[in-house]
């Protein structure tokens, strides 16, 4: 087995994403385990300067093309497919983030490679890669192996601390040309910046977060009162935002923001991986959920199996009484 391990470096709007360093840390481990080099692949336009930060890899392949200026999954997969055919890596770690989603599957279909999605950990066992994957909204974990090279590993955020993927070393950078249309077929017209919103939930000491278990928009007022009693703000998981019960500026998780309040009180949130990604680092997480198997209890410090609506009024009164 001589194929390299590749890490597809994610950069967006001129910056390397945290997941790039997480992937490098994990990629380093498995490349060393297999005794093969670790190579980072950086795609973009006029961002060669970013390659210098990828020093945990033994080397970097940089592809510069105007069609790669913005994240277009099709163009990126096209570019990677050309490289893969030429260099035949053993496996590629491709981020499963909202910037890179789709690239892995497109590439795999193009080069006839297997895909392993939702990977949260990867290791070498008897000379082959085994991936631990999170399925069914966090309720099941599967250990999976890919049959055939190159394995396209869709890596979820949080596999390793990003700091483990940083290095002072300057890697050798090789610039490689690919053939792409001048512009992607799908054109970015504009970025839509988030509305500032009335409250910046990334700056709060206390966040009361509501999920599907809150059941109705009317119940939000009660949760808001509890947040007020605790001196914090209200935020939510994807279903609550999709229902239009809370604005996008209050969304925690993959598409929203990552938060690290001193207290994160999760009410009726099951804890899908997309949500956990945005709040797992809070030092005190308390979760209330009626399902004892809810994955939120895997990251919570304190868990309560109850209907969130049964807990909110009592907890509010208790806190208010204490505060006087």
């Amino acid at each position: 087995m001589s194929g390299k391990i590749w890490v597809v470096a994610e950069q967006w709007r001129g910056k390397l994403s945290e997941i790039t360093f997480e992937s490098l840390a994990l990629g380093r481990e498995v490349a060393d385990g297999l005794g093969v080099p670790l190579q980072a692949v950086l795609l973009g336009h006029n961002v060669k300067n970013l390659a210098g930060a990828l020093g945990l890899a033994d080397s970097v392949i940089y592809i510069d093309h105007p069609a790669l200026a913005e994240p277009d999954a099709g163009s990126q997969a096209d570019a990677l497919a050309q490289l893969v055919r030429q260099h035949k890596p053993h496996a590629l770690l491709v981020p499963l983030t909202n910037v890179s989603l789709g690239i892995g599957t497109l590439l795999a279909e193009q080069v006839g490679a297997p895909v392993v999605n939702f990977c949260k950990d990867l290791r070498v066992v008897d000379g082959r890669l085994e991936a631990d994957c999170v399925l069914y909204g966090g309720k099941i974990e599967a250990t999976v192996t890919a049959k055939g090279d190159p394995a396209v590993i869709g890596l979820s955020p949080g596999s390793r601390p990003p700091d483990k993927g940083r290095s002072e070393k300057k890697p050798p950078v090789e610039e490689v040309a690919v053939t792409l249309p001048d512009q992607p077929v799908i054109k970015l017209k504009a970025y839509l910046e988030p509305d500032a919103g009335d409250v910046d939930i990334t700056q709060q000491d206390v966040l009361v977060a509501v999920g599907r278990g809150i059941q109705s928009k009317e119940n939000l007022a009660l949760a808001e009162e509890l947040a007020g009693a605790l001196g914090g703000a209200l935020c939510g998981s994807r279903p609550v935002i999709d229902q239009g019960w809370l604005p996008l500026s209050r969304q925690v998780g993959k598409s929203g923001v990552s938060v690290k309040p001193r207290l994160y009180l999760a009410l009726g949130i099951s804890g899908a991986p997309e949500h956990i990604e945005g709040m797992k680092d809070a030092p005190l997480i308390v979760a209330v959920n009626s399902d004892p198997q809810a994955p939120i209890f895997n990251v919570a410090h304190y868990g309560i199996v109850a209907d969130a609506m049964d807990m909110i009024p009592t907890l509010k009164e208790t806190v208010q009484a204490l505060r006087g």
């Binding site: 309720k139 599967a142 250990t143 192996t145 049959k147 198997q293 209890f297 895997n298 919570a300």
Partner: peptide
């Protein structure tokens, strides 16, 4: 192109909380 599920398990819920 194939992948093989070697094993599945339920994560230890509340081993953390």
């Amino acid at each position: 192109p194939l992948i093989e599920v070697m094993r599945m398990r339920k994560p230890e819920v509340s081993s953390h909380a």
